[in-house]
Computed example of a mutant assay.
Amino acid sequence: MIRFVLVAAGLCLGASVVLAQSEDPITMRQDLMKANGRAAKTATAMVRGQAPFELAQAQEVLQTYVNTADKFGALFPETSKTGHETTAAPKIWEDKAGFEAAVAKFGADARKGLADTKDLETFKVAFAAVGRNCSSCHETFRIKKN
């Protein structure tokens, strides 16, 4: 019986640690950015002709960006300015309205791209628009690593 209680307690503790980590806003936003990076890699290969264009895959790329935009803005509470090797710039909290507007534009362009993408040419236009948002936001609201 004691062994069962210890095993159960260990499982609960482990689950609590995993849950706490998954609820950490810095980790969550880093995970979203990693997903965006994977999506960008897929998109870039299609746009450059290094991989065949597949409409479903292009839509998945854009849906990844929509998902990020829907979640991202809420992941910057005051308590998440530091830690976990974050590259979030102080400008996010200094210009919250500007940051929220940048995230909203990213989401709007991703949604428009998702609706407009029918073939490689329309995907190129959509991906370029979303990419400009990424560059602009990273330039303003991200600390550059050496």
Score class of each variant (00 low, 15 high):
2 I>N: 12
4 F>W: 04
5 V>E: 10
5 V>F: 14
6 L>N: 00
7 V>R: 00
7 V>T: 11
9 A>V: 13
11 L>C: 05
11 L>V: 02
13 L>T: 07
14 G>A: 01
15 A>N: 00
17 V>G: 01
19 L>I: 13
19 L>E: 05
20 A>K: 15
22 S>H: 11
22 S>L: 12
23 E>H: 15
27 T>P: 00
28 M>L: 13
29 R>V: 03
30 Q>W: 03
31 D>A: 15
32 L>C: 04
32 L>R: 09
33 M>Y: 06
33 M>T: 06
33 M>C: 07
38 R>A: 09
39 A>Q: 10
40 A>I: 01
41 K>S: 12
44 T>I: 06
45 A>G: 04
46 M>Q: 08
48 R>H: 14
48 R>Q: 15
49 G>N: 09
50 Q>K: 13
51 A>W: 01
52 P>F: 09
54 E>L: 13
55 L>Q: 08
56 A>F: 01
56 A>L: 02
56 A>S: 12
60 E>P: 00
60 E>R: 15
61 V>H: 07
61 V>A: 07
62 L>F: 11
63 Q>A: 12
63 Q>T: 10
65 Y>V: 03
65 Y>I: 00
66 V>F: 02
67 N>V: 02
67 N>A: 09
69 A>L: 08
70 D>N: 14
71 K>I: 05
74 A>C: 05
75 L>T: 07
77 P>W: 10
78 E>I: 05
80 S>Y: 02
80 S>W: 01
81 K>T: 08
83 G>Y: 07
83 G>M: 08
83 G>H: 06
83 G>E: 02
83 G>P: 02
84 H>K: 15
84 H>F: 13
87 T>Q: 13
88 A>N: 10
89 A>Q: 09
89 A>Y: 04
89 A>S: 15
91 K>R: 15
92 I>Y: 04
93 W>Q: 08
93 W>S: 11
93 W>M: 10
96 K>D: 02
97 A>V: 14
98 G>K: 11
99 F>I: 03
102 A>N: 04
102 A>Q: 06
104 A>E: 13
106 F>Q: 12
107 G>T: 04
107 G>P: 02
107 G>R: 07
107 G>I: 05
110 A>I: 10
111 R>D: 03
112 K>D: 06
112 K>P: 00
112 K>F: 03
112 K>W: 03
114 L>I: 05
121 E>G: 02
122 T>S: 15
123 F>C: 00
129 A>M: 02
130 V>Q: 09
130 V>I: 11
131 G>R: 10
131 G>V: 05
134 C>I: 07
134 C>A: 10
136 S>G: 14
139 E>R: 08
139 E>F: 04
140 T>A: 11
141 F>P: 12
141 F>S: 04
141 F>K: 11
142 R>F: 05
142 R>A: 12
143 I>N: 13
